[in-house]
Design a protein around this nucleic acid. Structure first.
Length: 115
DNA sequence: CCGATGACAAGCA
DNA sequence: ATGCTTGCCATCG
């Protein structure tokens, strides 16, 4: 199995997040798993944390934790921005948590299979 | 260099 | 269901 360098890991995360379709969301663990690092969920979050404040080309608001909770809302310009962006896409949120998360969840592995 | 922290996740009580 | 503990690894002070 080929290993990804830190730099490639970052690029892989960027690309994966860009693939997330409108009106959907995925989790850190799912992304980490999709790019070959099942236990690197924290690193995915670390990468997005840096990205969300400088690279707006990446829909970082569509990435939440495995419970569908908006754990990264504080990393955005305002603490409500993340939720507003998601709601603008038709995603319902209640108490910082995506409602019907099961249906909103987008599995990157599903998309990779199609590639 | 070392210890603490973090946009996580799974396991256990 | 809630809360604590462990694993993982990059980044920070």
């Amino acid at each position: 199995m080929s290993k990804l360098d830190k730099k490639d890991f970052t690029q892989a995360v960027y690309q994966m997040v860009r693939y997330i379709p409108y009106g959907r969301a995925t989790s850190y663990g799912a992304i980490a798993h999709a790019i070959g690092y099942p236990n690197m969920s924290r690193l995915v979050g670390a990468v997005l944390g840096q990205v969300s404040i400088s690279d707006l080309d990446i829909p970082a608001h569509r990435v939440v934790n495995s419970q569908g909770i908006l754990s990264g809302k504080d990393a955005f310009a305002t603490s409500t921005l993340m939720q507003e962006l998601l709601e603008a896409e038709g995603i319902k949120i209640e108490n910082n948590k995506i409602k019907n998360w099961k249906s909103v969840f987008w599995n990157p592995l599903d998309e990779i299979s199609l590639l």
